[in-house]
Design a protein around this nucleic acid. Structure first.
Length: 216
DNA sequence: CCCCAGGCGTCCA
DNA sequence: TGGACGCATGGG
């Protein structure tokens, strides 16, 4: 039985060799990344990209302008991302918090020791969205867990099916150095292998780079 | 036709 | 506290 810490590091090496740098979430600004984090909730990324492009084309990718826009107009712009009524409320709630607590500067979240707690108080921002904003928009070394993380780890016997978000988050954070670049790439690699090989309802992962894990 | 996608809040036991 | 359900578009 190999130690969990060694296994997590070996998994990273194997995936990194197999897939290389994922350059994930190359949003042009922290605001754009945060908007994408909210819009991508339970939604395929191509749909999110259309919604983000609509906002930018309308010249609204700016915290104050987004808040000033009529909600019905914002809803129309983000329509391709689905759940557009819910997401309009969630975007506005996030923007109001950033305006109130950080002067409209998403980057300022990075310097607030209670940034995660403030994000979690926003209606519509849960643990994954909060961590995504902190890691990808603010560069804070916090590990992002998502459906792919659950599926890849449980498929290879590294986590229970009923492991919670915080169970998995702590698994990574306790066993890896707190490095934003590493957390970013590791999460991106898990998503990549999850899309590529570790698909739902497919118990066998043919050609999966992580096949070695089952034999460890 | 079906299932799936980088969740979350609400409701109810 | 935890499991079902609604939210909605677009792709395979």
């Amino acid at each position: 039985m190999v130690k969990t810490r060694e296994l997590l590091r070996e998994i990273y090496r194997v995936l990194n060799d197999a897939y290389g740098d994922q350059r994930w979430w190359p949003g042009e600004t922290p605001l754009e990344v945060a908007v994408g984090a909210i819009l991508t909730q339970n939604t395929a990324w191509p749909n999110v990209a259309k919604a983000v492009a609509n906002i930018k084309d309308a010249g609204l990718m700016d915290a104050r302008k987004l808040l000033a826009a009529p909600p019905a107009y914002l809803a129309a712009l983000i329509r391709p991302a689905g759940y557009y009524n819910v997401k309009t409320r969630r975007l506005r709630a996030f923007l109001e918090m950033v305006a109130r607590d950080f002067g409209g500067d998403v980057t300022a979240l990075a310097n607030a020791p209670d940034a995660r707690a403030r994000l979690l108080r926003v209606k519509g921002v849960g643990p994954e969205t909060a961590d995504s904003i902190l890691l990808y928009a603010c560069g804070v070394p916090t590990f992002v867990v998502d459906a792919y993380t659950h599926r890849v780890l449980s498929r290879h016997g590294l986590a229970d099916d009923d492991a919670t978000y915080d169970d998995l988050k702590e698994l990574f954070e306790r066993n890896l150095p707190a490095d934003a670049r590493l957390f970013n790439q590791y999460h991106a690699l898990l998503v990549r292998v999850g899309k590529d090989r570790c698909r739902p309802r497919e118990p066998r992962c043919a050609g999966c780079p992580l096949e070695f894990v089952s034999r460890s």
